[in-house]
């Protein structure tokens, strides 16, 4: 059962990555597309907490790093999404303290979590590129891309997050996750 859940989670991540490179370029804005893999990781963090999300973030990052046509140094998106998973998970724990034990985050909280995660994720990726001399764009372009990415991810949140969070909620029923 645990293995099956892991496979399902990975399947969701791979669907997200394929849609990101094959479908979303049709809607790209200055070449920036919604970061679906990141949204899946944030959804995992909001339903399952930081540890699970960090592990899933690592797997999702590997997919983004290795799936064609990626050509940057492998491990950069993995690092970015591990950080995203952890941070989004911590945001969830802050929300839960506010709304009561194991409470599901409200809409505003989800949007804030997505915006923060998107900003952190793309920034960590860009910074790792600067450190590894694997840049490909000027700092000005990077800032522009980071901001457009935040807008995209927030726009996609109402369409993607409730669905993915519901799937994670089904796979891991909440009473077994949050014992209060």
């Amino acid at each position: 059962m645990t293995a099956l859940r892991a496979v399902l989670a990975l399947a969701m991540v791979s669907v997200a990555v394929v849609l990101q490179v094959s479908l979303f370029p049709h809607f790209a804005w200055e070449g920036v597309v919604p970061n679906l893999a990141l949204l899946v990781v944030v959804a995992a963090a909001l339903t399952r907490g930081p540890e699970f999300a960090a592990v899933l973030g690592f797997a999702a990052g590997l997919f983004v790093d290795l799936a064609p046509p990626a050509d940057h140094i492998a491990g950069r998106w993995a690092l970015a999404l591990v950080v995203v998973g952890y941070v989004a998970g911590r945001i969830r724990s802050d929300i839960s303290t506010d709304t009561g034990a194991g409470g599901r985050p409200g809409a505003t909280a989800v949007v804030i979590a997505v915006a923060a995660s998107s900003f952190i994720g793309t920034s960590v990726f860009a910074l790792s590129g600067l450190l590894l001399d694997d840049v490909g764009a000027s700092v000005g372009q990077m800032l522009q891309v980071i901001l457009i990415a935040v807008v995209w991810d927030v726009l996609l949140t109402p369409l993607v997050l409730p669905l993915v969070m519901a799937v994670f909620g089904r796979l891991w029923p909440p009473q077994r996750v949050a014992v209060a």
């Binding site: 590997l62 993995a78 790792s128």
Partner: peptide, 30 residues
């Protein structure tokens, strides 16, 4: 490890292992 508020604190060992794995991967590819 459940905290009072019902949210589990992530284990540092898992995080450290993941971050290290990323670093190793980047170093290998670099």
């Amino acid at each position: 490890r459940e905290r009072r508020d019902g949210v589990r604190r992530p284990r540092l060992s898992v995080l450290a292992a993941l971050l290290l794995a990323c670093a190793v991967l980047m170093a290998l590819d670099y």
